[in-house]
Simulated assay, not measured.
Amino acid sequence: MAATVIPLFISGAEIAFILFIVLMVFGADKVPEIARGLGKGMRQIKDATNDIKTEITKSAEKQGIDMDITKDVRKEIDKVKEEVKDVAGSVKRKF
């Protein structure tokens, strides 16, 4: 049985409402710290993904494994990286 994927679309008004709630809960002085922390977290995820990809490639080359197999993994990783960039880009534009 295949899982159904429901895309998550958030409008500008919903983002503004979420930002308003964040501002009310944490205060104006904490929002830049939260955004900075989110940015650092996203960077760590990106770095970890690149490290894993490098290690997989190195191991495959040492073991003589056909790199066509790892190309599929690389494509999936690139897709995730692009999705993360899209989300991070929209967050950066809002702050």
Rank of each mutant, 00 (worst) to 15 (best):
S59Y: 13
I15Y: 04
K81V: 05
V31H: 02
E55A: 10
D51S: 15
G39V: 01
L23Q: 13
D78A: 11
K46P: 00
K94N: 13
K53G: 04
R36H: 07
R74A: 04
A60N: 10
G41A: 08
G41N: 12
A60I: 11
T70H: 01
R36G: 03
M24F: 11
L23D: 15
K58R: 14
S59E: 13
V87W: 06
F17V: 09
I6Q: 14
N50I: 08
A28I: 02
I77S: 11
T57I: 12
F26E: 00
D47K: 11
M1C: 14
V91A: 08
G37A: 02
V31R: 03
K62H: 10
I69G: 10
I69R: 06
K30N: 01
M42Y: 06
K85Q: 14
A16M: 07
E33F: 03
T70D: 07
S59F: 09
I21N: 10
G12E: 00
D72T: 10
K46A: 08
T49F: 09
E76I: 11
K92P: 11
N50V: 14
V91P: 01
E33A: 01
L19C: 07
D86P: 00
E61G: 02
D47G: 06
K79N: 15
V22W: 00
P32C: 01
K85F: 11
G27F: 02
A16Y: 05
R74V: 03
Q44C: 10
M67T: 02
E55N: 13
D78V: 06
